[in-house]
Amino acid sequence: MKGFLFEELNGGASCRTYLIVSPRTRDALIVDPVLELVPSYLQRLGKDQLRLTLVVDTHTHADHLSGGRELARMTGAVHAGAPLEVVERPLHEGDVLEVGDVRIAVWETPGHTADSLVLRLEDRVLTGDTLLIGATGRTDLPTGDAESEYHSLQRLVSLPGDTLVFPSHDYGGRTFSTIGHERLTNPRLRLDYEVFMRLMTTPRNEKPARLDEALAYNTRPREEHERHVEPEQVTAFL
């Protein structure tokens, strides 16, 4: 039986935010929070009197504003992960996060972005935008690299088939998958190297609607960010 509590916080929206809690200590970790939803995360923590110790962004998000900095600032938690110039605690291959008595392994999985990370627990993996359900993260946005993505995916699919997969996005209302299911059904995982490279390096016309805004906000250095007035969605809650 797993020794932690696990919950998705965004109610099935395409952007997924995960809460991991140590039942014994009530310490908590939130992964990939969305800025506009920070008030709801605070309410969730308060409901069960959880102590947020870590907030992790698995990569530099290009489609929404990260709530990582604000959530950490408002709770005293440590903001970790990516981007390196923004977070208080950069994460690297082989790091282990401790949330109470829960241990979470960090993998570097570049490809979707150069700073992409995956978080592995005892029975599941939080795949960020590296591996999605039935797809993979695109590699045509800033710092993306198709070859790195291919090798990161090969590493992920080497996990046991019953490993649960929880991505940072899903556009079909699905909540999770497994490594075994993705091996069998994910079209991109069934491509050989050459075909995968052709597909992932073909330019795509559509870009995330908030690309410029998201990248500007999410990559703002920590010192500069502290001099800016925060967006209304957060300051109105204070």
Rank of each mutant, 00 (worst) to 15 (best):
Y193H: 15
Y193S: 10
N186V: 10
G11T: 03
G12Y: 11
V87L: 04
H151D: 10
T139H: 02
H79F: 15
G12W: 08
Y41K: 00
S168C: 12
E232T: 02
T178F: 10
R89E: 13
T17F: 03
S152F: 03
H79P: 05
V87D: 06
F6T: 10
A105W: 14
I179N: 05
V56K: 03
E7N: 05
R188S: 14
L211V: 01
S177Y: 10
E232S: 12
T201V: 07
T127M: 09
D115N: 11
V118W: 09
G161L: 11
L117H: 00
E194C: 08
T143L: 02
H181L: 12
P23S: 08
L35C: 01
P142T: 03
P33S: 08
E8I: 03
P83V: 00
I104V: 14
P203M: 02
P33I: 03
E232W: 12
E108C: 13
T60P: 02
E206H: 07
A77F: 02
Y41M: 00
A77T: 05
H225V: 00
E226C: 02
R227Y: 10
L19N: 08
P23H: 10
S148M: 14
G100T: 06
L91E: 05
L238T: 09
L189C: 13
R103G: 05
D115I: 09
P39H: 05
A13R: 14
S168G: 15
A236Q: 14
R222N: 06
G94Y: 11
L191N: 03
D123T: 14
D145L: 03
T130Y: 00
S14R: 09
G173L: 01
M197T: 04
R16C: 06
A28E: 01
S152H: 07
T178H: 03
V99H: 08
V31H: 07
G12C: 08
L132C: 09
G144W: 08
K207W: 11
P167D: 10
R103N: 08
G67M: 01
G100D: 13
P23T: 03
V125M: 12
H181Y: 13
A236D: 11
I20N: 02
M1S: 15
V31F: 09
G94Q: 07
G180E: 15
H59T: 04
A62Y: 14
I30P: 06
R220I: 11
A28R: 00
